[in-house]
């Protein structure tokens, strides 16, 4: 009798959250994905995916999305790692630094996009400052259809500003889990700061780097509000296409197809991270 209760108890305790997850996330998600491969009549079809593949914005969308990922994620990881190492060196006031640096986390992505729009737009802060300082005499247009590089740069800057902090927080937490002995031993056995970081800190930080990369990449795939605010429809990305097909063109099937594409790409990246950065079984204490 007792044994049975103990066996069932964990599941019973998990049940409420399972129900919650199923109702609010799992079922809507499955329904949304079914929209991509199921016609209104109930038949399974690849017609929507084929239509997506020939959509005018399709090629731009996936290329831009990957481009942003390739630019944003490494930049953020490097920036965040540098900041985290700095914080971890416990300089005076490092706690304040951490808090101040984390403030952008509290700002919604659309607000962040608009904030940076105010900087980069033709009459924005950047131009005003540059003119005021006499660096340029005429306001420059950074954000336009013709200036693709400007658009990308603005988005990369805004995204980095907004979301590097989350990566840093994860890495700082990871660094603090590493016993100080390891840094000391590395120093004592002749490693300077750079080699200490390369040979000891980074390898020991792999679990946190992995989480940070996965979280950051998933969010970068979903970049949407910042892009919309800064580039409007001049720079199609997958997430924005999904939104646009649903909200503007009222085509749930195509929107779902784009969402499915996003899911597929996310899974591929996550899998790669897990394989490349995962701890070898031999390194883990069983």
């Amino acid at each position: 009798m007792w044994a049975r209760t103990e066996e069932i108890l964990p599941y019973a305790l998990l049940l409420p959250s399972l129900v919650f997850l199923a109702l609010l996330i799992l079922i809507p998600m499955v329904q949304a994905l079914l929209l991509a491969i199921q016609a209104d009549s109930g038949e399974f079809t690849t017609a929507y995916l084929q239509r997506m593949a020939v959509d005018v914005n399709f090629n731009d969308a996936w290329r831009n999305t990957l481009l942003l990922i390739v630019l944003i994620v490494p930049l953020q990881i490097v920036l965040a790692l540098a900041m985290a190492l700095l914080v971890n060196s416990r300089f005076k006031g490092h706690q304040w630094f951490l808090y101040v640096y984390a403030i952008p986390l509290a700002i919604s992505d659309l607000a962040a996009g608009i904030l940076w729009l105010a900087v980069f737009t033709e009459r924005g802060y950047l131009n005003t400052a540059a003119q005021g300082l006499g660096i340029v005499d005429q306001a420059k247009v950074y954000l336009s259809f013709e200036n693709f590089g400007g658009l990308v740069a603005a988005i990369v800057i805004a995204e980095s500003w907004r979301a590097t902090a989350i990566v840093m927080v994860i890495l700082v937490a990871g660094l603090q889990l590493i016993p100080r002995d390891f840094f000391e031993a590395a120093d004592l056995f002749g490693a300077n700061r750079l080699r200490r970081t390369l040979y000891v800190v980074l390898p020991l930080l792999r679990p946190s780097l992995q989480s940070a990369l996965i979280i950051r990449t998933i969010f970068a795939f979903q970049t949407f509000a910042v892009v919309l605010a800064l580039a409007g429809r001049n720079m199609p990305v997958i997430a924005a296409e999904a939104y646009s097909w649903y909200a503007n063109n009222r085509d749930a099937h195509l929107a779902a197809s784009y969402a499915l594409l996003l899911l597929g790409l996310t899974i591929v990246f996550t899998f790669v991270y897990l394989r490349v950065l995962g701890l070898r079984e031999a390194e883990v204490k069983r």
Partner: peptide, 21 residues
């Protein structure tokens, strides 16, 4: 001088053997 320039070797009380090597 920092530890690495003192030309010493040490066995730590906690070993500090690197787990990833």
């Amino acid at each position: 001088l920092p530890p690495r320039h003192r030309n010493i070797a040490m066995v730590f009380q906690s070993y500090a053997v690197f787990p990833h090597m």
